[in-house]
Amino acid sequence: MQDEEALLCPSSPPRLGESVLIGVVSGTPEEPRVIPTERAIPVTQDIVDLARPVSPGEVFRFASRCRTAACIHFKNATCHIAARSTVLLDEVTGKLPYCAIRAQCRWFHQEGSDVCRRCPQIVTKQYAPSPEALKIVDESEPPQ
């Protein structure tokens, strides 16, 4: 089992000196797709500035240390974003997509490859999220 302290959240805000860039958002607003980077790239101000004039989370996917209980989506030793994603989202790829952080990914360690086949459609910041995306972050009900 991976050391809990070393696990990374694959959908975190960019934190200078702490986060890594792991993907670039592509696709359409209705069907976004995250294209993984070849390697995890340390976040710098230059990377954050590339997203202007929009929020960096609309353009990029970042990973940083999982905050566990300090995160609103983490309860009862479970990341509810990962748990809900495997229940509410359809797979968008039949094969396991490349991932620069899989060995350290909280979602993968919790949900296995099921979440990986859904991961490319998860965008951290969306201004017009789908009904499914809204259900994933709805904390009023626990994941099924």
Rank of each mutant, 00 (worst) to 15 (best):
K125G: 03
F62W: 08
I35R: 13
A128G: 07
A128S: 09
E141K: 15
E139P: 00
S85A: 15
T124M: 07
A40R: 04
C71L: 03
T28E: 05
C119Q: 01
D114G: 08
P42G: 10
S64N: 09
T93N: 02
E38Y: 13
G17I: 02
P53F: 05
D90S: 14
A40D: 04
V25L: 03
S55T: 07
Q110H: 05
D46H: 05
A51V: 01
L89R: 09
P42S: 09
R118H: 10
G17C: 10
S64F: 00
P129K: 08
Q144L: 13
T68D: 04
A40F: 12
T68H: 14
S130Y: 15
H109F: 13
R67L: 15
L89I: 02
Y127Q: 12
P142F: 11
T78W: 00
Q121T: 12
R52F: 14
A6V: 03
I41D: 06
C119G: 03
H109S: 00
E5F: 09
Q2D: 05
V123P: 02
S113L: 07
N76M: 09
T44P: 04
G57Y: 03
L96E: 12
P120W: 09
A82K: 00
P131F: 02
R118M: 08
P131C: 07
R84P: 00
L7Y: 01
K75F: 03
T86Q: 04
